[in-house]
């Protein structure tokens, strides 16, 4: 049996949780003050996910990069793979907030969205 210590982040209480696991299955959760802590521990130990936020390069923009986010949380273990994919991307300016940069990031079925706008640079006269 494996034991894991987590801090619940669902509310500012930050309860220290202890999870007992066997072959990837959660056997018990303790230390939580409310049921939300148990649910959090379940998810964290079986399929943790995170929203990834980063930047990608913009060609001919007034700024060199535009911030992006995944439209929904992606599996945590894919974060670095997704970052590598982002490094390969360049979008042409203009970019508008909410633009879909990539419809399916790393086979997750989740889109990558622009979270800000970058205008096109005026060509030098």
């Amino acid at each position: 049996m494996e034991k894991r210590n987590l801090t619940c982040i669902v509310c500012p209480m930050g309860c220290a949780l202890t999870v007992e696991l066997e072959e990837g299955k959660v056997l018990s959760v303790s230390g939580n003050t409310c049921p939300r802590g148990e649910k959090y521990a379940q998810e964290e130990c079986t399929h943790p996910t995170r929203v990834l936020t980063s930047t990608i390069r913009v060609a001919d923009g007034v700024l060199p990069v535009v911030p992006v986010k995944t439209a929904a949380p992606i599996p945590k273990e894919l974060l670095f793979e997704a970052m590598a994919a982002l490094r390969e991307l360049t979008v042409p300016a203009p970019v508008a907030i909410g633009d879909v940069i990539c419809p399916d990031l790393c086979g997750t079925g989740i889109a990558l969205l622009a979270t800000s706008s970058v205008e096109k640079k005026e060509p030098d006269a």
């Binding site: 911030p67 907030i97 979270t115 800000s116």
Partner: peptide, 10 residues
């Protein structure tokens, strides 16, 4: 909703 900083500002 969980927004990023630029989205909140927008």
């Amino acid at each position: 909703e969980e927004l990023t900083g630029p989205e909140y500002a927008a």
